[in-house]
């Protein structure tokens, strides 16, 4: 490496200037990998599908970016695009938080659902977005995903759900919890009709989402390094009073513990889905 050519020794003492903040990377032009700290041009990162060229860390994709990545020509016929949360419990600060999240993410809720083609194969797709309310599942997320599953069942299309979530949305309390039963029951019906469900787990997916639809895929794929689990590592460390291994709950950890089928690099994700869809495609007149 180039840096090996230069001695590491400093010739002069550096005095931290009070303006050191100003030397931070200008917003938007450069991108610092949250894992290894590698700094590179944002343009380069985008070109590399938001995967760090140094350590291979898969940066979070927004739902729109994910759709761009997966769907043919980035096109999705969106369902229920105008569905938004109510504040059924009159929970302190909830309404304001929703509005703030909408402004921040440019999304109305934590999941985009719709139908389109992937490598020419039709599919119903649901993509969660961590940038809206940490991808938490409330009534809207549960309802949109359930409707997407039901439509897939009806149309005899496969359903693909790309998950990322911090868990259930506390501000909707019990209604959030019940979305777990609702989505899982819809998947059961889809499955009973012979429908295919591919679950794609992305970083991070925790709580009520893996404890319902995200872990129920006929095939479960995860992006490298994606952390997936029921309880978060902080909670577990407090419970067992032990430090957890670095790779705890990562895709690779889950793979070695038999919880998922495959870890797939982002650049291979679409080709893998196309291959899977092809192998499950119902050919006209074929014997099933």
């Amino acid at each position: 490496m180039l840096k090996d050519w230069f001695p590491n020794k400093r010739k002069y003492a550096t005095i931290p200037s009070p303006n050191s903040k100003q030397r931070d990377i200008p917003e938007g032009i450069m991108n610092k990998c949250p894992k290894c700290g590698h700094i590179q041009l944002s343009k380069e990162v985008e070109k590399n599908l938001k995967v760090c060229s140094s350590c291979g860390y898969h940066l979070k994709l927004s739902a729109r970016e994910r759709i761009e990545l997966l769907m043919d020509e980035g096109r999705l016929f969106e369902f229920e695009a105008d569905m938004i949360s109510e504040d059924p419990l009159n929970f302190p600060g909830y309404q304001a938080k929703i509005e703030q999240q909408q402004a921040k993410s440019g999304l109305l809720e934590g999941v985009i659902t719709g139908e389109g083609t992937i490598g020419g194969y039709p599919a119903v797709v649901a993509v969660m977005s961590f940038d809206f309310f940490t991808g938490s599942m409330g009534s809207v997320v549960g309802e949109k995903i359930t409707r997407a599953i039901e439509l897939a069942t009806q149309k005899k299309y496969p359903i693909i759900i790309v998950s990322t979530s911090g868990g259930a949305r506390m501000q909707e309390s019990i209604l959030s919890l019940m979305q777990m039963a609702k989505t899982s029951a819809a998947l059961e019906r889809h499955s009973a009709q012979g429908g295919l469900y591919i679950s794609v787990l992305t970083d991070p997916t925790y709580g009520g989402v893996p404890a319902s639809f995200a872990m129920l895929g006929d095939i479960i794929i995860a992006e490298p390094g994606a952390r997936v689990g029921f309880a978060g590592p902080v909670v577990i460390e407090q419970t067992i009073r032990q430090k957890l291994p670095n790779d705890f709950q990562t895709a690779e950890f889950n793979l070695s513990h038999g919880q998922i089928d495959k870890v797939v690099h982002r650049k291979d994700l679409k080709p893998t889905l196309v291959q899977l869809l092809d192998m499950h495609a119902v050919k006209e007149g074929a014997n099933r």
């Binding site: 029951a185 404890a211 319902s212 129920l216 689990g229 577990i236 709950q249």
Partner: peptide, 22 residues
């Protein structure tokens, strides 16, 4: 559900999800 490392290793999420499904 118990938030422990052994529970995670053995698929706490999947176990809950499977019950809802079945």
């Amino acid at each position: 559900a118990y938030p422990g490392s052994a529970a995670e290793e053995r698929g706490q999420s999947e176990a809950i999800a499977r019950n809802l499904f079945e």
